[in-house]
């Protein structure tokens, strides 16, 4: 039974308390979903993709998780929006952490959740296109 909020920096708290990209998307082109077995967090990202340019037109997330997981999700969406799928695939935990200006050490895995969920969504989309 602990209270950890003072360990989160202002940037993390901003994305946690006022996320810009949270919510469900109507008719997304693809959904990526990952469950973190370590802490039970679940993240979903929804993508709309411009078929001509292969760019992410719109992105939203839904996350069941802690403050760090929600903030990581929001930052991931911010980083991915407008990027080509190729570039978006390169978004990793390091970039998410940079954007958040760091997380408490015990919360590092929350940024991994963001990276994995987006990659999974893009892979799903590419599979769909090929088939």
């Amino acid at each position: 039974m602990q209270n950890k909020f003072e360990q989160y920096n202002k940037e993390v708290m901003k994305h946690f308390l006022k996320p810009k990209y949270s919510g469900k998307m109507k008719n997304p082109d693809v959904i990526g979903r990952i469950k973190n077995n370590m802490c039970g967090d679940i993240m979903e990202v929804y993508l709309k993709i411009d078929k001509k340019t292969n760019k992410i037109k719109d992105i939203k997330f839904q996350t069941m998780g802690c403050a760090a997981a929600i903030a990581s999700s929001d930052v991931l969406c911010e980083l991915a929006k407008g990027k080509t799928l190729q570039k978006a695939k390169k978004i990793d935990k390091k970039k998410i952490l940079e954007k958040l200006r760091g997380l408490p050490s015990i919360k590092m895995h929350c940024s991994v959740l963001g990276e994995k969920t987006l990659k999974k969504a893009i892979e799903e989309y590419e599979k769909k296109i090929i088939s």
Binding site: M1, Q2, N3, F16, L17, C39, C66, A69, I106, K107
Partner: peptide, 28 residues
């Protein structure tokens, strides 16, 4: 929804609580 996140919002409203959530413990 996660207890840690509820606690985070409560804290933003000036309310001190605690949680049994793994995400909030030293050991996860």
């Amino acid at each position: 929804i996660e207890g840690e996140a509820i606690g985070g919002y409560l804290d933003a409203y000036g309310i001190c609580s605690s949680t049994g959530s793994a995400c909030s413990s030293h050991t996860m």
